[in-house]
Write a protein that binds this DNA or RNA. Structure first.
Lengths: 334, 334
DNA sequence: CTGTTAGCGCCTTCAA
DNA sequence: TTGAAGGCGCTAACAG
């Protein structure tokens, strides 16, 4: 038979209420009785039942994690594994479980709240025009996105994408580059658009050339980065530097550049975005804009918990600073 | 205020017990009262409280999913995203939630059972000499592994790795190949060893040469496959076919072969293992041994649930058949 | 076939 | 500071 709070109470010769107080670190317990109870807990091998606690407190102590269907390549991306580490780490600290859901087609987020299985939702890789989020907001369900979407009232944690891109491209300009290309992901995600806008802003401020010939789309995989860069290099006058808006594409790009017989950074400078682990191991190492991915994960959880516990008000929008990491793939234009 | 079963009972003019019976599809309810109750449920917008149900039935309706720390590259592997799809799909069908845990260093699996947060554990990518599993078995906690380990009493779902490798290499032999190389992952995982053994068995049965010069280790990434194949091709007499024990390494290998100026399959035949999506998109397409990854996922959940509900006895060992998928990377030795 | 009753194990007033 | 009692929302006997 399973031990209950009753057994501990008897063993310690106190009431159930007192045991409960000890369990929940209530201040109004004598140090003496606390020790007595703790001893009884140890001896009996008692663990409080999560379900009973959850029923009485009307809290699920649980966050639903919604990830995009892995059919999209997205989930294999190092970004997701890293932010996941942040999620699990912080969730444990905050005392919340993480429930895993795959965001299949036509998935109705709200239903998860109805039977109180989750206190809040953490949504990863949501499409920018997802309508489900609006319902969450309207119903006042606590939720948090990792990444901005079009809906203005949405809660999210993101990186300062525009600023990061601006900084990276400014750095290239300061190195003397005049013809700077852009290679990045689909505008289906806001962060891609913002990075592009940051890039564009620098070029405009410096009256540098921009346009279709300098721009190429890819999908955040080494393969696609390779292909996109190949196309970019077919141009009659190729750029002397390219800002690649994510590291996987950048790493794929490197291969294409080398294959073409061009040197990095002597002939072409390359800057990525993300600072995934791999970026330190390429040849040459990749200059990139670091997003604090792990911190975005912990921050998202921590803010969501505050939302759940009523300590913050919606809308909750947070952008974490990026940092330019200068490595070997970028250099001056002679 | 939140609706309870009481409200529905009053609305439908029946007792709580009857509502409960309808909710749980009990056969002993008149079709008439069932409809009456269903109507009341609809009207009231009632959803039963998961926590209350779980407390009464003493079931968490929850499976703990333990994944290796993503610091290992493993989690970025398509294998994991695919098996995850199987997990979530089947868990939903069986009515279980999936709780996500990262297998950090020194993680004590058993503790998750103590407070009854999970009914069982699903462990992915467990090291072959993990001692924690023995504790689970000894304590009679329901659990399931994806992949065999050294502990003989362990429950697991795996693919027929040895047989799959045997079949692949036999096929190469039948094509006329006499010098067949092996490239694969660390024996830290049993499946790698089994695949190697399947390979070796064929060579021995046909009195073909084998040994260090024909064997190379890698770590299941394109990068490492590329590097490993480069080394293999430095040999004075290179193989005419190589069995690469996983697709990512195989795809990396292809690049190395092409770079060396050799043709696939004219100069070297290549066979992979896994049949990840990418295998259909390489140039040439990759002949490979398909593991039923998705089915391994659904099977693991379904067996675990049967273990939880006492419908199966331990030890529970299941190996799912593989299938040789012949594509463009393999051909006859002239 | 339906209703009544008694918990599941915990937390939380309210008294003492 | 501690204890007694009630209730969270549901299911599971047991009657009827």
């Amino acid at each position: 038979m399973r031990k209950t709070i009753e057994h501990v109470a008897q063993l310690a010769e106190v009431s159930k209420a007192t045991v409960s107080r000890v369990l929940n670190n209530s201040p109004k317990v004598t140090e003496q009785t606390r020790e007595k109870v703790m001893k009884a807990i140890k001896e009996s091998g008692y663990y409080p039942s999560a379900m009973a606690r959850r029923l009485t407190t009307n809290k699920a102590e649980t966050i639903g994690l919604i990830i995009p269907s892995p059919q999209d390549k997205t989930f294999g991306n190092p970004f997701y594994t890293e932010i996941l580490r942040g999620f699990t780490h912080q969730a444990k600290i905050e005392g919340y479980d993480l429930l895993l859901f795959i965001n299949e087609h036509q998935f109705n987020y709200s239903q998860l709240f109805h039977d109180r299985r989750v206190d809040g939702l953490l949504l990863v890789g949501v499409n920018r025009n997802d309508k489900g989020i609006i319902q969450l907001s309207k119903n006042n369900f606590p939720y948090m996105l990792t990444g901005k979407i079009d809906y203005k009232e949405a809660n999210y944690v993101d990186a300062e994408n525009r600023k990061g891109a601006y900084q990276a491209v400014s750095y290239l300009v300061n190195l003397g580059h005049k013809r700077i290309g852009y290679l990045g992901g689909s505008f289906d995600f806001v962060f891609n658009q913002e990075r592009f806008e940051g890039y564009l802003q620098v070029l405009k401020e410096h009256n540098l050339e921009y346009g279709k010939e300098l721009t190429m789309e890819s999908i955040n995989t080494e393969e696609s980065g390779y292909e996109a860069m190949r196309k970019l290099l077919e141009s009659s006058s190729i750029p002397t530097a390219v800002f690649v808006a994510n590291d996987l594409d950048a790493i794929g790009s490197m291969k294409a550049v080398k294959e073409k017989g061009l040197r990095i950074p002597e002939d072409i400078s390359l800057i990525g975005f993300d600072d995934i682990q791999l970026a330190s191991y390429t040849e040459p190492t990749l200059t990139t804009v670091r997003q604090p991915i792990y911190e975005m994960g912990t921050t998202a959880i921590s803010l969501l918990v505050q939302l759940i516990e009523g300590k913050k008000e919606v809308p909750l929008k947070v952008e974490l600073p990026t940092q330019l990491i200068i490595r070997g793939s970028s250099g001056g234009k002679i």
